[in-house]
Simulated assay, not measured.
Amino acid sequence: MMILTLYPLYYIAVASLSHSDALVGHTGLLLKPLSFNVEAYRFVFQNPNIASGYRNTMLVVLGGTFVNLLMTSLGAYVLSRKQLYWKNHMMFLIAFTMFFSGGLIPTYLLVNNTLGLGNTLTALVVPTLISTWNLIVMRTSFAAIPESLIESAKLDGAHDFTVLFRIVIPLSMPVMAVMILFYGVAHWNAWFQAMIYLRDRNLYPLQLILREILIANSTDAMMTDVSSQDKSRIGESIKYATIMVATLPILIAYPFLQKYFVKGVMIGALKE
C-alpha cells in the first residue's frame, strides 16, 4: 500500500528531472530519470506567475492560519466552559452547519456584494475563518483541562483572556499543532474560492496557477525562446516540474507536525 501511494509522487519527481525527448517516447514504469535534465525547472522559475502565486499563497497560508487559530481558540474556549448558558443549543446550531449550508450562490453574493471582498485575498480567508470540525475538536481538548487549574488562575486575578493565552493554549500545543496542519494544508491546496472571487491575475494563489498549467495547458508563456514544434513535448516536463514546485514545501513542513497529529486528534476526540 505504501508503494502504491508513494509511486505516483516518485514518478512525477523522476519525470520532472527527465529530458523531454526521452520522456515523451517512454512507456511503462519510470524508475529513474531519463537523460537527467533540469530544463523544466528553469522554465518554471522563469514564469512570473509562479513567483506571484507563491507570494499570494504564503500570505494566505500564514495570515489565514493565524486568524483561523485565533478565532477557533476564542470560540472553543467559550464553548468549553461548563457554566456557559445555552451551551447545548449553541453547539447544536454550530454542528448544524456541518450538514447544511446556504449554498454557493448565496455565499458568493454575501462575500462579493454584501461584504465587498471580491477580488481581494481577504475573500480567501474570511469565509472560512472557523471550521466547525476543528472548533469541536479544539473545544473538547480545552474541556479536558482541569477546571481547578482555571479556577486557581482566576483566584489570582487572571481574566479569561489571560487564562486562554497563558494557560489553556500552552497546555494544548499538540491540538494547536494539528490545527496548524489542518488549516495550513487547506489554505495551501485551496483554489476554488480563488477562481470565483479573484479577477486580478496578480492575486492568483499558486494552486490556481497550477490548475491553469495542468488543465488549461497554459505552458506556452514559459517557453518564449522555444520553437513551436518543441513546445508540446517540453510542456509535459514543465507540468511535472510545476507539480513538484507546488507540492514540495508542504511535504517538507508536514513531518515537523506529524508527531503531534495522532496525539492532538486523540486529545480532541475524548468524550466528555
Rank of each mutant, 00 (worst) to 15 (best):
M98K: 04
Q83M: 11
V78Q: 08
N47T: 05
F100E: 01
F99N: 02
Y41E: 11
T72R: 13
H89K: 02
P48S: 11
L84E: 11
S52G: 00
Y85C: 03
Y54W: 04
L62H: 02
Y85Q: 07
Y54E: 09
F45E: 05
M90Q: 02
W86G: 14
V67T: 09
N56A: 03
R81H: 10
G75E: 06
F92N: 02
A95K: 03
F43D: 06
F43E: 07
Q46E: 13
F45H: 05
M90N: 05
K82D: 15
I94R: 01
R81S: 11
M71N: 04
K82R: 15
V78W: 09
M91A: 00
N47Y: 11
Y54I: 14
T72E: 08
Y41W: 11
V61Q: 03
A76K: 13
V67G: 01
N47C: 05
M90C: 09
T57I: 01
F92W: 12
Q83C: 00
N49R: 13
T72S: 14
V60F: 06
S52D: 02
M98S: 07
M58H: 04
V78P: 08
T72N: 12
T65N: 06
L93D: 03
L93M: 12
A40D: 12
Q46L: 11
F66I: 13
R81T: 08
S73M: 07
N68R: 06
R81V: 10
S80C: 13
N68E: 05
N56F: 06
L62P: 03
R81C: 07
V60L: 07
Y85R: 11
Q46K: 12
